[in-house]
Every structure is written in C-alpha cells, then in structure tokens.
Computed example of a mutant assay.
Amino acid sequence: MLVDLLGQWSFGAVDWLAIGAGIALAYIVFGIAGFGTALVAGPILILFMPLSKIVPLLVLLDFVAAFGNLVPSRRDVHRPELLRLLPCMGVGCTLGVIFLLNLKSDLLLLLMGLFISAYAIYSLWIKARPTMLSTAWAVPMGVVGGTFGALFGSGGFLYAIYLNSRLPKDQARATQSALISCSTVVRLSLFSVAGVYADGPLLVLAVCLLPAMGLGLWGGRRLARRLSREAFVRLVTWLVLASGIALIGRYLSA
C-alpha cells in the first residue's frame, strides 16, 4: 500500500537520497536558528516535485519540528516578548494570505531577498551597532514576518533578528520556537481547509521524511549548544544572508 501511495512521485534511490539529505540539512539549520527550512530545502526539492507540494510538505514537517524544539525548552520562552509578537504575527499572516490569493508574489519575493541580503551584509560589515532593538520593533517585525511566512514560508528570520537583539540565546531560540509553532498551526489550518492534505501521498511522504528531519534537528541542537551568543548571532546573520541570496535566485529562475 505504501508503494501505491508514493507511486505518483516515481522517486529512484538517488532521488530519495538527495531529498533526505536536503531535509536533513534544512533541519540542521532549523535546529540552530529556528527558521530557514523552506529556503534551504526548497532549491533541492524543486528538482523532484512542484512548489505547490513543497510548501505544504514543509509546513507539516515544521509543525512537528517546532513543537519538538518547544517541548524541552518551553521554560525558556520569554512570555512578554511572545505576547508582544503574536498579535502582530497574526495580522501579518492574515495579510499574507490576502496577498497570496490576490497578488502576484514574484516581485515581493525579489524585494524580500534584496532587503534581507542588504540587512545581513550591513550587520556583518558594521561592528558597532545597537545591541538591543526597541520593543516598538515588535510591530513591523511581527507583521512583516507573518506576511512573509504566509507568502513564502520564510518569515522566521525577522523574528530571529528581533529576539536575538533582546534576549539571551536560549530564551531567543525558545521564544522563536513558540512563534514558529503558532505560525505553523495557522498555515496548517489554512492548507487543511483548502483540502491540500486530502492528497494521501503527500502525508505519506512527510512520514517517510521524519527520520531525516529528526537527524537534522539532533545535529542542529548539538551544534547550537557549542556556540557562544556572539557566534550564534553571527551564524544566524550568515543564514539570513544565504536566505536572501536564495530568494533572489528563486526569483531569477522563475
């Protein structure tokens, strides 16, 4: 029965190896930074399946991964920052769904890539910069992060920028995991209502990729524990830059 359900994908052994490696790499990044799965795994998975299947697939895996990250670190969640960002993220997700249903997102994709690449280059280049953002930044970071998350599956970098400027590393990661958990619940609900998961093979594929996801999370968590706060923030900034370049590349290849 499993073969029948996966029959539509027609994956060979090398295909499965590449897909599994892409998922593992994406969740190593997720385990370290708490975001980036769509931007890391997307360019690999697009070789084997359409984007319309990739985003719902990664939402399923992100749902499991985010709660897996949240459970052991829930005591580190900084509730004031979480409650400050959640309403803004909710507004952003609503706007993102409206834009997704009514606008062409290719130009937004390019603008997003240019913006976050410019920010990352600035952050890496300028050493003397404010160490803490004002709480007022929760509004644009939350709204735009929610919007980008609904449009492109990749708004977590904005939460990371804000939280890493205000909280210690463990609290920032735990609070971001809580935010990503809430975001995936919203997106999972929207895809479910739209009937996306009525497609049996997609659910089975997600289950088959759970071991690769688990391996990536395990590796990412081990790496994150060995990093100082400064090294962690710098690594997140490099990941943000890579995400921006990936978005620009996706726009140019579309």
Rank of each mutant, 00 (worst) to 15 (best):
L2E: 10
V3R: 14
D4I: 14
L5Y: 15
W9E: 15
S10D: 15
S10R: 10
F11M: 04
A13R: 11
D15I: 00
A18S: 11
G22D: 02
I23Y: 06
I23H: 07
A26C: 00
A26N: 06
I28N: 15
F30R: 13
G31N: 08
I32M: 04
A33Q: 08
F35L: 08
T37E: 06
A38V: 12
V40A: 10
P43D: 10
V55C: 03
L58E: 03
F67G: 03
G68S: 10
N69E: 10
N69P: 06
S73F: 06
P80M: 03
L82N: 05
L82F: 02
R84P: 00
R84Y: 01
M89P: 00
V91E: 02
G92Q: 13
L95K: 07
V97N: 07
L110A: 01
L110R: 05
G113C: 02
G113I: 01
I116C: 04
I116R: 01
Y119Q: 06
S123E: 12
W125A: 03
K127L: 06
K127S: 08
M132W: 14
M132S: 15
S134Y: 06
T135F: 13
T135V: 15
P140G: 08
M141F: 01
V144H: 11
T147D: 08
F148A: 12
L151T: 13
L151A: 02
S154K: 11
F157Q: 04
Y162M: 01
Y162N: 04
Y162C: 00
R166M: 08
L167I: 09
L167V: 08
L167N: 02
A172W: 04
T175K: 00
Q176P: 12
A178Q: 02
S181N: 07
S181A: 06
S183Q: 14
T184W: 02
L188M: 03
L190H: 06
V193T: 14
V193H: 09
A194C: 15
G195L: 07
V196M: 13
D199W: 06
G200F: 15
L203V: 05
P211E: 11
A212I: 05
G214F: 10
L215K: 10
A224T: 13
R226M: 13
E230M: 15
F232T: 13
F232S: 04
F232H: 12
T237H: 00
T237Q: 01
A242C: 11
G244K: 00
L247K: 09
A254N: 11
